[in-house]
Every structure is written in C-alpha cells, then in structure tokens.
Design a protein around this nucleic acid. Structure first.
Lengths: 303, 303
DNA sequence: GATGGCGATACCCTGGAGGCATCGCCGTAC
DNA sequence: GTACGGCGATGCCTCCAGGGTATCGCCATC
C-alpha cells in the first residue's frame, strides 16, 4: 500500500551505481538482500525498474521516473524528521542560509520585531548543496544565487548584481578598469560542480578541480589553474593578495533569490520571507557601486 | 533510519480523530496495533507526539509539526507511485487540470507543436481538491484560481478577471447593470469548502450546504439558499434560467494561476508551462469585456 | 461502589528483512 | 574449448516487526 522509503533508498543506490554488489556495499547490506528488496519494490509498484542482462544493469522508463522522483521524496522525509525533532525540543529556531557575499542582517532585525521569541540562526551555504540543504531541512530559508535546481523549492527573485572576473594578480587584464566577456575568450575556466543535478547524484570525483566555495576559488585562481567569476558583493567581502577583480561589462548579472522548501508550511517562515523581501534593497547594498568603489580601491593597494 | 510512511499514515488518522479506537476503525486495524505503532513512531522520531490522559488525546508541539508535514509527504509518495506506474505503461501523457471557465485549448495547441508525441488530457478540477490533485499526481499541471494552499506547489500568476455576483432570478438586484459589494451586505453567502485546509483534512460532513463546483452553486442560488460570486469567464460559460449574473464593481478580481507540484521535474511539464504562459492572453479572452457583453446579452433574453 | 469507555499490556502467529552459502549464466583468457 | 571469474538470483536459516485476541488499569460518571 504505502511506498517503502527504505526500499526506495536501496533503489536509488542501485540506480546510481548500476551495480548490485557495489550498491550493497554502499548500503552496508549483503547483495542478495538488495536483490530481493529491489524485486519486492518492482512487484510493489507493479512495474519493472531495472533491466538486468549480461551487459550489466540499466534503468527502464519507470526506473528513470522513479529515480528522478526518489531524491526529493527522500529529502522531504528527512526534512520532516528533522523538523519534528526540532519542534520536540520546543526551540523556536529558524535556520537561514546565505550564499557568500549576502548579508541577511537587515531581514533578521526586521523579523525579530515580529518574532522576538524565535532564535534566528544563520549559516553559509554553497552552490553545490544549497538546494539539498533546503530540501532536507538543514536550513529553513535560503538566500541563494542562480542557477539552482528548483525541484521541490519555491524560489522568488530578490535582486540582481553585476559580476566580476576573478583573475590572478599577474594576469594581463589584472588592474584594468573593466573588460568584456570577449576579452576572456579562450581563458581556462575553473570547473564548478553542477548544481542542476539531483541531490543524490554526486559529481564524478576526479573530473577536474572541484571548486567549492569562494576561498577555494580564490586559491585556485591565484594558483593559475583558471579564472572564474563572482558576484560583485562576494568580491567586496573576499579578497586575496594574489587575486584581482575586474568588472566584466557585458556579463549576465548574478540573480539573488529567496528559496524555501515547497512542502514547508509555517507562518514563521512566511514572516521571514516577508521581512526579507521588505529589506531586499538594504541587502542588495552590499554589492552596490559605492561599496564596490571602496573595496576595489582598497584591493588595488595590494593588488 | 527511514521514516515509515505506514506509521505516518496511522499517526495522521489518530491526529485527525484524536481517538485511538475510532482511528483504528478508519484504518481497519485493531486498536492495540495502532497504539503500538504510534508508540513505535514516537520512539523512532525520539519525540512524544501525543499526550494521552483521562481527558482524551491531544497533540504535542512535535505532533502538530508532524501533522502539518505528513499530508504533503504522503501525497508526494502517492504521486511518485502514480507517475511510475504511468511511466511503466510507456504512455507519454500529460494531464492538465482547469477550473471552470478556463479554456486551455490555446496552450494545448501551442504545446503540441513541440511535443506531437505527448497526449494531452484535460480534466476539470474544483476548488476543494485542486491542490490535492496536483500533489498526488492525478494532474500534472493545473489552471487554478486563488485562493489555493501553496504547500508543495509552485504557483505562478497568469492573469486576473473581474468577478460577478450570482443572484436568484427574482432577486431585487437581478438584471442590474452593476452593483457594489456594499449593496450585498447582509445577504446570505453560500458556504464553500475551505481550500486552505490540509488535503488530509476533510470538512465536517454536515456543516451547512457543501457547494462544490459551478453547477451546484447555480442550483443552490436558484433555490434561494444564498448568493455567491464567480469569475466572469465562468459566468460566460455557465448559465441557469433561474440565475442572474451582475457585475460587482469593487470586488477583488479573480486571480488565475498556473500550478505544478514543486517536486515535479520534467521537461515536458516545463514546456507546457512555457506554452501556457505564452498563450495566457488568449486564455484570458474568455472572460474579457466582449465575451461578457455577448454572454450577458444572451442571458438577459431568458433572465 | 459498580460500570463503562479507552488506551496499554501480554501473548501468539505470520511474514518480511537480514545473513550465508550456493547456483546459473555469460564473457573472457589461455 | 575449457576453465575461471564476475555478477545477479535462489535457497534456507534467524529474528524482529506488524497483525490479531484477550485482558488489564485508570478514571469519569452515576
């Protein structure tokens, strides 16, 4: 009758590896058990999920559908468990995530007027798991940057800000007032993990440098492994002696959004969203022209 | 480790009834079994969910949190099962729901250009289960009218249209060119089922007339049980010899939106959404001034 | 003080999830 | 061509979770 989330998790493991033995290892169970559980799941759903033949294991149409749906569902279940245990502690706490360069202070202050009893916790998030953290309830609200996989989320735009190129200090364009995207044609770009994959899908471990977070980006750029781009407010907050920021005039701006898990129903969350929207302009100021002039003036002193 | 959806369903039954014996009846299991399952769930979550004392059963904070989260989660699980079985049949089919008065033809035609292989099915939906149908996968996309419980959904506005009062033919305002909301102060309003409740919560069966759908509305109004309001396009499509429509000049307009389950990831769905947005103006025409003049002209012939 | 309603406990039975050993199939190597 | 190895499936055992019935314990009511 009801879907069995354990079997579903097992299925995801097999679908990820396309190999019963290795998936069983991942799950710390014996391979025959896994084999039977998957068969039981197929019988339960009344549909074959995997094709096993001498060439290995492959997904059927139904299996592909289940794989795409399983991730969000399992994440929601996680989120439910997490929220219940939090509610049980009686702690009225709101966890707000924010991407590098974004300052939630104004919204937090505004929110505290209406909800002095709620403790607002803030936590930095990164591009590669911003969606997953919302889905499984580690954060309740997120100041995120696009792109983001909107599956299971409710995403509303807040503001945009220009982006700048991140160049090694010795680069031929370092210190320029501004450049265009065309100037950088052919430059090696750092490879960022794909944020549009399902939360269950992990990027292949040895596919180039895995750049996660701003500090790593700066290190890699300084080391000459490639160039990158950052939102201007991020550049304002993070500097590195061996790195130079240069505005790129024709680059698509960075879109900052508010995101919550769509399955989340809570007046507290709604009130925070309202506060965040009301203070969007203040939040956006961190990347405005004045802040940029100040910051880039300071940066050129050592860049 | 994983949440047990069966236990979760059991919990919802108990939380709805606040009575173990009756909930057990609903679930067709014995009361002691239910008692133990709930206790197991509490142990599993590490939090008490219900307070049992001589005065009966009550929810704890954690229990309330779980109850609000359980509905969407169970609905998602249903949706996953449904989509997998559909995918297994290999049928590329898209189910589009629409509220009364909304014509999806333009979007369907536009969509068919890109996806001639996908069969688009349309189905009328009602206010009281429009959200539930999206959440549990009975429809993939919905042309809905506000208000709607956005939990678990992604809702984007399409267009608005004026609303009209629905009056019995013998009403003192019947046949008027227009009236204001104040004119109708004190008039008995038909009671519509609350759309903002959780999908698991059913309205109490004997709480006034349960008006579901347009036809019932017209019958009840004609029978003199109260007046009601409808979007103008709905009024254009539905007429009743004993009912008269009168524009209300200062009534908040009806907002038509597109809605999909937030956990739904599918390029086919995305393409339909794009087509629906692209054809929004055509869709909105059904309730425009010209259509209204034509329809109300015809209506006055027998009204 | 007797009674009845209601959740919890005790006890039993069955089925499902886990383990281990082994089979059957097929591709490959020598 | 045969031997071998990889891999999923099957057989068989154990144990616990989920189902049932009978009954207890508590309390409110009369």
């Amino acid at each position: 009758m009801d879907l069995d989330l354990r079997k579903l998790r097992y299925f995801v493991a097999v679908a990820d590896r396309l190999h019963f033995g290795r998936a069983a290892d991942d799950l710390h169970i014996a391979q025959p058990v896994l084999s039977r559980q998957i068969r039981a799941l197929e019988q339960d759903l009344g549909a074959p999920l995997l094709i096993r033949d001498s060439h290995g294991v492959a997904l059927t149409d139904a299996g592909r559908q289940l794989l795409t749906d399983a991730g969000p569902l399992l994440a929601s279940a996680d989120a439910v468990r997490r929220r219940v245990t939090v509610a049980a502690r009686g702690s009225r706490r709101l966890m707000v995530g924010f991407r590098a360069g974004i300052t939630a202070t104004a919204a937090v202050r505004e929110f505290a007027i209406r909800h002095p009893d709620v403790i607002v916790d803030v936590q930095r998030i990164e591009s590669d798991d911003q969606a997953a953290m919302l889905l499984d309830g580690r954060i309740d609200v997120g100041y995120v940057r696009l792109p983001i996989d909107e599956t299971g989320l409710r995403v509303t735009p807040l503001y945009t800000e220009p982006r700048v190129a991140v160049l090694p200090a010795g680069h031929r364009f370092a210190g320029r007032e501004q450049i265009t995207e065309a100037d950088l044609a052919g430059e090696p770009l750092l490879w960022h993990p794909d944020t549009s994959t399902q939360p269950t899908k992990r990027p292949h471990p040895n596919a180039g440098y895995l750049v996660r977070g701003v500090d790593e980006t700066l290190e890699h750029v300084a080391a000459g492994r490639g160039i990158s781009f950052l939102a201007r407010s991020t550049a304002v907050f993070y500097s590195h002696p061996e790195v130079s920021y240069v505005p790129v005039t024709d680059l698509a701006p960075d879109q900052v959004c508010l995101a919550v898990a769509a399955s989340r129903t809570s007046p507290v969350v709604d009130d925070f969203l309202a506060a965040a929207h009301a203070t969007a302009e203040i939040t956006a100021e961190c990347g405005n022209d004045e802040m940029w002039r100040l910051a880039s003036g300071a940066a050129t002193q050592h860049g």
